[in-house]
Design a protein around this nucleic acid. Structure first.
Lengths: 327, 327
DNA sequence: CACATCGATTGTCACGTGTCAATCCGTGGA
DNA sequence: TCCACGGATTGACACGTGACAATCGATGTG
């Protein structure tokens, strides 16, 4: 394991010179000296020890990103990639940790003296407090913002179903406790739009996602021309499956729109209408806030709604006017 | 940021005493002294600095797990969780990094002097060489093992379809270059089983997973009673969708089995038959190999096949004997 | 009573780094 | 010739930790 002392002796200079040149203070030195040191570091494959640097600086260049407890599809993956790359450009190292891995998070991570923590899922208030007590910068997807986003998605789904001509609208949510707060916000968003537009709201459908659970659908579809705003594409698929088992036609009798733009929704029959979440522009705001050190600015809801795109599939094409947009 | 010196002065002893008691050498000290130091550390919320420890030991307690460039569903997520927990039990900290985040991996990570790297995706040979040159233990899902696993899955799918009575069998693979080596191994596994059992093999179907691509299915289903072994549940759904658009019945005319046991496959109509991958027992082998320091023992194929379970859905229930197992 | 013994506790060193004060050396002015 | 100047380079320190040698003190032995 080569150290800066090795580089120094290899270049015939003092270790101090090596350290300064490699840390941006090269203007104090002769050009050929700079070149010689750089070359020596290159030859020896020198990588400064994070441990040594952390020790002297009091804080490391490490940022820990907490990954929420959901399946990580292409969009979320891309967001993480972007955050990692932008942090790298700013000189920081992004490392990941699953939020599902118990309380061990703080024990395991705080010893690293990370420069900051990015939490893609809401943190508990005392978790946040403890992190900040250790001078760790925190940028999180707060519960408020998350709920605002979910509400906006619910409204967007309802608006789509209304535009397509469904006269009654319901939300469909999975029976997973962990998802409850978000599901509630979604359903509220659906209700909000319907009340504002004077469209009839039907009680929220609770969908059991266990294998085969929909084989014997109940009379949950007691309405003709019902539009269903599903929690995600999986739930949307369950609704389509249940309707099919009940002998109802999609989209003629029941319309469905999901969220996520999952692969299977684009190739099933019928193809699923869905909402695509574009997370790209958030990454910049996150990294910016982290590096500057202040909190993440609460985006206005106008800004948020721009991040969503309705993708028209066959599952909600009630009216003949429902054409597929070019994509 | 409290250091061991703070704990020492708080307990009225020397820093050396603190260090020894907190590192398992407590048998050398009086019980009440041990208690006093432990209490002081607790009171001050002391967490030893990874940097300091790394510096003096020459290597850190950090393990970096490289996450492959695929969507991370519940099974993979659970594997990562298990690895993290088992490593924590052994005193190591597991941190994650996406494999897709460019070549910056080595620059960013090697400075941490990690104890080891777990790669859930095959590494390039020179990557592995460079890691080992820095005394980093490497445990990877080698290309050979990955291909052996895929071959076994393909055989299992073909065997299921054959058992269900489909007289002709085809593999269905997505058009994604990144997946090509694995897809090829799967198709080969399907072919192997068919040749061994004397069942007719049909040319591999190449499935375009772009939205709406299957709306105008070609004449790819030129065979009655065709069994299709799909690359995953998404591809299986595409096959079902295309069959449906072509006016063919599933499972009567075409049988389909996927891989992954994804949620949507259990609630669609028809429900998808699939293969569930049980990754639990691999985590133990991985951590074991990493902590011991030798390479990951190449599991025999018999062992591997035990990790797979066929889940019977409606999409491959050609024969009346095809009953749904209790689960 | 002197001394060896042994358990309990402490002192010291090294790890690799970044920063800043200190030193070196060549040049120009008085 | 001497000194001040200033740019180029180096020395020394601190960061927090774990391991090991060294020290302390009390007890038992001759």
């Amino acid at each position: 394991m080569t150290s800066s002392a090795d580089v120094a002796s290899h270049a015939g200079v003092s270790r101090s010179t090596v350290s300064q040149i490699l840390n941006g203070h090269d203007h104090r030195f002769t050009p050929d000296m700079v070149l010689r040191v750089r070359q020596a570091a290159e030859d020896l494959g020198y990588r400064p020890s994070v441990a040594g640097r952390t020790l002297v600086r009091g804080t490391s260049d490490i940022v820990i990103t907490l990954i929420p407890d959901v399946t990580i599809g292409p969009p979320l993956r891309e967001l993480i990639d972007l955050i990692t790359q932008e942090l790298a450009t700013a000189g920081y190292t992004n490392l990941l940790r699953l939020a599902s891995t118990g309380a061990s998070f703080e024990d395991a991570v705080l010893g690293l003296r990370p420069m900051g923590v990015v939490s893609l899922a809401p943190l508990s208030p005392d978790q946040r407090t403890r992190l900040e007590a250790q001078n760790v910068r925190v940028v999180e997807q707060s519960l408020e913002v998350q709920i605002a986003i979910d509400g906006a998605i619910g409204r967007l789904q309802a608006a789509h179903l209304g535009r397509m001509g469904y006269s009654r609208i319901a939300a469909a949510m999975p029976l997973i406790p962990r998802e409850l707060p978000f599901a509630t916000a979604r359903a509220q968003g659906v209700r909000d739009w319907c009340e504002a537009e004077g469209v009839q709201v039907v009680d929220t459908l609770h969908i059991d996602m266990a294998r085969g659970a929909m084989s014997h659908p109940t009379t949950m579809f007691g309405h003709a021309q019902l539009g269903v705003a599903a929690y995600n594409d999986d739930v949307a698929m369950a609704v389509v499956g249940a309707a099919s088992k009940a002998g109802l036609r999609v989209p003629a009798d029941i319309g469905v729109i999901g969220v996520d733009n999952a692969d299977f929704g684009g190739v099933s029959s019928p193809t699923l209408s869905t909402i695509k979440l574009d997370l790209a522009l958030s990454s910049h705001a996150i990294v910016e806030a982290l590096v500057r050190g202040d909190g993440l600015p609460t985006s206005s809801l106008e800004d948020l709604s721009r991040q969503f795109t309705v993708i028209q599939g066959e599952s909600s094409a009630l009216t003949p006017s429902g054409r597929r947009p070019n994509h």
